[in-house]
Amino acid sequence: MMTPAGSLLVATDLRKAYGTTNALDGAEFSIHAGEVVAVMGPSGSGKSTLLHCLAGIVPPDSGSISYAGRELTALSDAERSALRRTEFGFVFQFGQLVPELTCVENVALPLRLTGVRRKEAERTALHWMEQLQVEDLGAKRPGEISGGQGQRVAVARALVTGPRVIFADEPTGALDSLNGELVMQLLTEAARSANAAVVLVTHETRVAAYSDREIVVRDGKSRDMERIV
């Protein structure tokens, strides 16, 4: 077992097939608390599937995922959902903000899902929106703000519950380089100050350069680049 001591989230020998294609074929992964790990690889290599498995969104066909000593594959769907609500945060490429809710309501949503009262949830949400420099967008709806602002709102939402791991799947995929850099800078800074680990799936090396470590996924197999040098 090559589990590095003190890892927060460790996955070994993950396998996952969609139909006849093997999205994951013995992938490994580990991340420390507060660490930013970039997951890279060509399209269709299985990097998103790896993220989905690590986050407990999709159960792998086989293999083990251990988060803070708990085996994720042994949890029920409801338990995994609860874990995602409280311990994890998510940022996707696009289409993740509820178009009818205002930005502050969107950010407050994960808190509301855990049962926090509306007023309090929105106060916390505003705090995080300040961190991401989007506090003045609170009353606007996602359709009325730019893509970069939307992603920052999404990052604020990912951070609002104080998660220990943030999963970001191509968070800058739909942005130009300036906005992409800004989002990455704010995301990693906020994550570091909150001591949250970040699993960052990206195909852009300049985005990956914000990480501490890089893992390359090819044909469903992972490769930790740190161990090469």
Partner: peptide, 16 residues
């Protein structure tokens, strides 16, 4: 579809 999936991803209950 995408929105629903991402809501589920961050732990929204199906019942909600």
């Amino acid at each position: 579809r995408r929105l629903l999936s991402s809501l589920v991803a961050f732990g929204t209950k199906r019942s909600t």
